[in-house]
Amino acid sequence: MSQAPGRWRELIARFGLLLALVVMVIVLASISDRFLTTSNIINVLRQISVNAIIAFGMTVVIIGAGIDLSVGSLLALVGVSAALLATGAGLPVWLVVVIAVVLGLLLGLVNGLFVGYAGVAPFIVTLAGLTIFRGAALVLTDGRPISGLPPFFSRLGYGTFLGLPLPIWIMFGVLLLTFVLLRHTALGRAIYAVGGNREAARLSGIPVRRVLAFTYAFSGFATAIAAIVLTGRLNSAQPTAGQAFELDAIAAVVVGGTSLAGGRGGVWGTLIGALIIGVINNGMNLLNVSSFYQQIVKGGVILAALLLDRALSRREG
């Protein structure tokens, strides 16, 4: 009877990530007295907000046993579209935001239709999306950044509410929305079922194709919100923005304990994953570690997280 070790295992599996984060914070706090200050903590949260918002959408796709490589390009395309509408067409800002979000959702849905209904591998579909969306962003802007945006954007990027920067509020908003979707709706349950065992889901009458299509639409939706936030932070929209963002988002999801095989994981883990990556970046910046080394360390952390996950999820036979 390995009852006690089993319980430990469960606890570590559940809270191990949080523990890793806490240990990291303690270590960094003891090395640098600038680390554990309110302003630095808010700084870290603000830095991770764009990546975290994208990663929440990515979590939904990955739980459905998919992958979305197109998010970085989609972010750029939505960003420049919003900027063009806000500067050139003279539309009211609220309408620009609505159009941008709907555009992200529709672009994601196109990915989803190919995956769900045409049965093309998600990797291929979203790889195509990655280059097509990037190309479209470059075509729309002729390759040039768009500035001169209405003040709404910089207020969004730099404003605060109750002392916290708006991007952090938006991040928590998307987090909550994604959490409710995954844990409190029938659709969320269906996503876990489709990702965990597609055949069993189909035999249970779950509309597998529709569910799959939705996950990519949701990823597009979340990425569009991230695009608005980033445009606000930069106070301009760049067609080259968001390159390799898909990798950062996937890293946050995976470090956060969501299984790439699908069916397992959650959005709180992704938040912690994004925090771990953010804290590592921030700590190394404070310690003046060169950005070249930072990339190596980040890769190492991702590998370590995956190995840990494998070791914990190996079930006793």
Partner: peptide, 18 residues
Amino acid sequence: AGLVLDLSVRENLTLAIL
């Protein structure tokens, strides 16, 4: 084809009546 192994007993039992 019958079970989603990662889900709980409850979640499997109610999968077809969501």
